[in-house]
Every structure is written in C-alpha cells, then in structure tokens.
C-alpha cells in the first residue's frame, strides 16, 4: 500500500489529482518540476481534484513558480477545493502566485 496518491497530467492544461501531503509531494515533485521548468512553461494547473495540501505542497509550488519566473515562465493555479484554498489563504500564497477560480480566468492570468 502506498500513500503516493498524487497524479500529474499534462494535456492542453495540466492537472494535479490526489494529495499534496509529504509523501505525495515526495512522489510528484521531481516530475512536476522537470515537466514545467525546463521549457519555461506558462502553466495553468487545475487544482480541483487535489483533496489535501500541507506546507510541503506550498513549498513545491513556490519553488516551481520561482524557477519559472527566472525563465519568464509563469505558474497559475485554479479552482482549488475550499479547504485547500483555506491553506493557501493561511500563508497568503495568492500574494506571490496567481490563484484563480476557474480555467478561463487562469488562462487570462497566465497570459497577462
């Protein structure tokens, strides 16, 4: 049995599915970073199926957003579940990473 129940899918838009707890982040961080950062992506991430996030997930997003910004890329998150959004708000993540309510506003934000 494993707790690494987080998935990352890239099609037109990218989505994370599952849990961004410590084991989940350990299982996905390398692929998440390696997929987005080398190509200086302007990435919009669908958060609607992320059911849990803790500080390690926040750390991962800040780390990737920082690496992208150095290459003129950008990270935008959208549609977090209410309790995930509360964690974003607790650390004021929205001050440095754009968090949008839906895909349309996320796409507008990433192009801004």
């Amino acid at each position: 049995m494993t707790n690494r129940s987080i998935g990352f899918c890239v099609r037109n838009r990218s989505s994370l599915v599952g849990r961004l707890d410590t084991p989940g982040v350990a299982g996905i961080e390398l692929r998440f970073t390696a997929t987005l950062v080398p190509r200086a992506a302007r990435a919009v991430i669908d958060m609607s199926e992320v059911e849990f996030i803790g500080s390690m997930g926040i750390r991962m997003f800040i780390s990737v957003a920082r690496a992208l910004s150095k290459k003129q890329g950008r990270l935008v998150l959208y549609k977090p579940q209410p309790m995930v959004e509360e964690v974003f708000n607790t650390v004021a993540l929205g001050k440095i990473i754009s968090v949008q309510p839906d895909a349309a506003s996320a796409l507008a934000s990433v192009r801004a």
Partner: peptide, 25 residues
C-alpha cells in the same frame, strides 16, 4: 511560523517554514 508578507516578492519569498503557521490556524 511564516506567512507571505504584504508586497512579497517571489524571488525573495521563503519556500519553507509554513507548517506551524498552517497548523496553528
């Protein structure tokens, strides 16, 4: 127990130390 300050800059933002802030909330 960190939070991202008003006017925080992505380049200078801490990327760790949020755990206690999150738990205390």
């Amino acid at each position: 127990a960190r939070t991202l300050a008003e006017g925080a800059d992505l380049a200078e933002a801490p990327d760790g130390g949020f755990g206690l802030k999150i738990a205390r909330a």
